[in-house]
């Protein structure tokens, strides 16, 4: 699994959120039994994420992390790596909390 190129926008917001990355990584290892080498690992290229895993991941994100994400609003780019998932969740959370987009 090769790392995805980091982009500036992701770096900036994720720098403050390693705990979220860790918690998402824990969902992968403890709930989905999937080892993801690093937060930047490309989940799509290696076929780690299939439809079943994606649906289960969304379930655990809601149950364990408290973020409700409808499959309809998911763009695969948001789920390409643990880092991007964290970024996506933070932007969604900002939207719900403040009633305005934070990104």
């Amino acid at each position: 699994m090769k790392p995805l190129p980091r982009d500036g926008e992701i770096d900036a917001s994720i720098a403050a959120a390693p705990p979220l990355c860790d918690r998402i990584a824990a969902l992968f290892s403890e709930k989905l039994h999937l080892e993801v080498p690093s937060p930047e690992t490309d989940l799509m290229e290696s076929g780690v994420l299939d439809s079943l895993t994606l649906v289960e991941l969304l379930f655990y994100i809601e149950q364990d992390l408290g973020f409700k994400i409808s499959l309809e609003v998911v763009d695969l780019d948001h789920f390409r790596s643990i880092e991007r998932i964290a970024h996506f969740l933070m932007s969604r959370n900002g939207f719900h909390r403040n009633g305005d987009k934070t990104t």
């Binding site: 403890e30 039994h33 780690v48 079943l52």
Partner: peptide, 22 residues
């Protein structure tokens, strides 16, 4: 445990054949 077993199994089987529940 599941994490290790799944990882080792993934070297032998395609992902659709890997157990999801342990």
């Amino acid at each position: 445990g599941p994490l290790t077993l799944r990882k080792e199994l993934s070297r032998l089987l395609p992902s659709y054949m890997l157990p999801t529940h342990w």
